[in-house]
Amino acid sequence: MIKVRNLVKHFGKDEVLKDISLDVEEKEVVVIIGPSGSGKSTLLRCFNKLEESTSGTIEIQGVHVDKSNINQIRTEVGMVFQHFNLFPHKSVLENVMIGPIKVRKWSHEAAKDKAVALLKRVGLESKADSYPASLSGGQKQRVAIARALAMEPKIMLFDEPTSALDPEMVGEVLAVIKDLAQEGMTMVVVTHEMGFAREVGDRVIFMDQGKIVEEGIPNTIFTSPKEERTKVFLDKVL
């Protein structure tokens, strides 16, 4: 589903992604872990070109991502941000409807049916007419997930979806993501929730200083990492 080859990204003189190659298979859940500043967000944002890569190639569903097809590709790739980025001037329902209506050109009724169903799914149908400012962090993030799902994406990208949440709200958001994984959604999740990584991830990637240091199935990475840097990191966070 995602095929990355020799991806390099510079910010000015800083090389923040150094020759990254990576494949994500259909229905696979890939979890990316690593210290802050290691380039996890930048990598994720290169997938849908929120960040322009310096060199290297990215294919999504067999299509080479470039300027000409990026809007089309973005409709297939949902993204959930650390800070939710809900549209504050739109109600919860409108937040979820706007993508299908403006981008997919669905009718208002079809978009509304879809949005109501998704809000029900994330447990927020009662908040449809509220505005984002009145929601808790966990509720906001669940709306953000519903908004992304409304486009019926084939792939979902999550960039630290629970890092901005109070601890008691982490669970409700992870439950929604877990549910998606069980349904077979292809996902790439950047997270610091190691328990979640272990339970839901098909594969864990450890990044440090712009490189993929180590990858493997969660059990192996968490119990017997090969690389010294992975061990040091895991000792700190576990």
Partner: peptide, 21 residues
């Protein structure tokens, strides 16, 4: 916040749609 533009673009909205809506 720059995140507003990013959220809109990540849904597949064009630059003009993002500005407008």
């Amino acid at each position: 916040d720059k995140g507003q533009t990013e959220a809109a673009r990540s849904l597949g909205m064009t630059k003009v749609q993002t500005m407008r809506y």
